[in-house]
Design a protein around this nucleic acid. Structure first.
Length: 572
DNA sequence: GCCGTTTTCGGCCCGACTGTTTTCAGTCG
């Protein structure tokens, strides 16, 4: 049974949680967390690196000890140290820290002094009033525990970025109406354009913070004010979403943007860099002693640290700081670079709009082309096109193109990859298309090897240009099918095939990390919205954001090319 | 446990808010 990076990540995180509760050296705990993060973002398989005898200590945050532990997990599937720790500290304790106000120190106390190791026991003890006997525990904390226990079932959901936008827009509008307000920006993972958002972090500037804080807590969707101080506040909305507000004066706007945008790992790395140069970095500015070197603008904060400006989408401590220091940050893709959409449906299969409507909508976006990729016959629920219907659509597109100006409809199909890797339509018909997009829509249950082989076999057909939504995941709904993306990327590179970044906000598939990995392998990415109506074409910006998070430049993306150049790239 | 234009040992980001306290530890982001 192969060990995946995610398995090692889970072991390290569990170990870090428990070590923290045991009050181990906090820097040792951090080392395990950092290693977990490195592995999480690592697009290659650590197991394979071990098998190839590669040096894991070259990875950031991995030294001799952790390299040996990764090797141990890869070879044995287990981590002995974790077993030893779990023998003295029950792993259920980690879940207790999910209660707001309970951290590792208090959980340790609860276990040592009251023998509490589960949420059930904790709730019972709180209801019995037994917590307030402990030092620095009181009635308020007991109430929090009881409240959190009741909420337990419904928590821990992250919102898709598109959903978060609804909440963010309302809050932004509300805060911009606050008395004496200057700037209002939604920061955090929202500004970094992550695919999901756990909470919203709003930064506002003002000379006097109090009126803003008061205004914030009066927002009509607020269910509960979680905390409220002179310069920051946190509320929970009726929907359950937590929103934090931070107010700073104008001269700290840039530094506060950096601080509140994160990521946490990026901030820590920035502050460490400052420290190495004798500078203190906080949300008020960059300081040398009492002297403020920067603070009003983000660019100045980075410059004071000897760095080029880092776009928010890159701020994940995945090498962007080194790149900014060396002047090799990528020139990221922008929406303006996109010349067309390579994945769209019409009502011929499961879409809502006609060919002509889709073409007009694409033209309105100033595109040069749009590929119509209706489903193939196997996708019966989606009214997939059989060879005769597709042949008719091809003729219809030819006729339509003769009437269009400035926009070209590309003849395509989202062809099902059958279970054995064959394509769902005959080669002779595929030869009549401008490009062929292939996708897995059923038989998600195949094991990893079979699923990977199935898709590689589809790519063996030289007519296959693009693998759509390569992992098959639906964000916050279902994981993808089991597949070795590393192998798919390598196979695509060998065959001159391309991988899609599906821009639909519930897919964003490939994800950022794998986009970057594909780029490193020289595999170009096709951006497509998977639009099922004219409105759906507007989802391209989510794909662009994800591509930017994957460090993609215009040259790494297929549909930044004018049609003649794209056509040449599609010829295999 | 990691890491190095001060270091192979001795550091390791920084500040706000809460709750329980008589000055601050713990938690959070």
């Amino acid at each position: 049974m192969a060990v995946h990076n995610a398995d090692i990540v889970a072991l390290f995180e569990r170990l870090a949680d428990l070590l923290e509760i045991e009050e181990a050296n906090p820097f040792r705990v951090r080392a395990y967390r950092r290693a977990a993060m490195t592995l999480q973002d690592l697009p290659e398989s650590a197991a394979q690196m071990v098998a190839q005898g590669r040096d894991l200590t070259e990875l950031p945050g991995i030294g001799d000890d952790l390299a040996a532990k990764i090797k141990e997990v890869v070879e044995t599937g287990r981590l002995r140290l974790l077993g030893e720790v779990e023998a003295r500290t029950p792993s259920t304790l980690a879940a207790l820290t999910s209660v707001p106000g309970l951290g590792p120190k208090r959980v340790h106390q609860l276990y040592e002094q009251l023998g509490i190791s589960t949420l059930k026991q904790l709730e019972a003890a709180a209801r019995a009033g037994r917590l307030r006997g402990l030092p620095r525990f009181g009635a308020a904390l007991e109430a929090k525990v009881i409240e959190a226990a009741g909420r337990q079932a419904t928590r821990e959901r992250r919102l898709r970025i598109s959903t978060a936008e609804d909440f963010a827009r309302g809050l932004e509008t509300w805060m911009k109406a606050a008395p004496g307000v200057g700037q209002v920006v939604v920061c955090g993972s929202y500004r970094r354009r992550r695919e999901t958002v756990g909470d919203l972090d709003i930064l506002a500037t003002a000379e006097a913070a109090a009126p803003l804080i008061a205004h914030f807590t009066r927002y009509d969707e607020v269910a509960q004010v979680v905390s409220q101080g002179p310069v920051r506040s946190a509320v929970r909305l009726k929907s359950g979403l937590q929103v934090d507000l931070r107010v700073v004066p104008d001269e700290s706007y840039g530094a506060a943007l950096v601080y509140f945008t994160g990521s946490k790992a990026h901030n820590i790395a920035l502050r460490r860099r400052g420290q190495e140069r004798g500078l203190k970095v906080n949300e008020y500015g960059v300081f040398q002693g009492d002297r403020r070197l920067a603070g009003a603008r983000e660019e100045d904060v980075y410059r004071a640290l000897g760095l080029d400006y880092v776009d928010p989408v890159l701020r994940e401590d995945r090498g962007e700081i080194e790149a900014a220091a060396n002047g090799d940050l990528p020139r990221l893709l922008t929406a303006r670079d996109i010349r067309g959409d390579l994945h769209a449906h019409t009502r011929a299969s499961d879409g809502k709009s006609s060919l002509a409507e889709m073409a007009a909508a694409a033209a309105a976006l100033a595109y040069e082309y749009v590929a119509i990729t209706d489903h193939s016959r196997h996708a019966t629920i989606a009214h997939g096109l059989d060879p005769a219907r597709l042949a008719a659509q091809i003729d219809e597109i030819d006729r339509l193109n003769e009437t269009l100006q400035g926009i070209r409809v590309l003849k395509s199909s989202e062809v099902d990859i059958l279970a054995d890797g064959r394509l769902d339509l005959p080669d002779a018909l595929l030869d009549r298309l401008d490009l062929v997009v292939c996708a897995v829509h059923y038989q998600f249950g195949l094991d990893r090897r079979a699923q990977t082989e199935r898709i590689v076999r589809a790519m063996d057909n030289r007519r296959c240009n693009i693998i759509a939504h390569p992992s098959g995941r639906l964000i916050e709904e279902r994981p993808g099918y089991e597949v070795d993306l590393e192998q798919l990327i390598e196979a695509a590179a060998e065959r001159g095939c391309f991988l899609e970044l599906n821009a639909h906000p519930s897919r964003l598939d490939l994800d950022d990390v794998n986009c970057r990995f594909a780029k490193a392998h020289g595999v170009k990415i096709a951006l497509g919205t998977d639009a099922h109506s004219t409105i759906g074409l507007g989802a391209m910006r989510y794909g662009v954001d994800q591509a930017r998070r994957g460090w993609l430049e215009p040259g790494d993306v297929l549909n930044t090319r004018p049609w003649p150049e794209l056509k040449r790239l599609l010829a295999r």
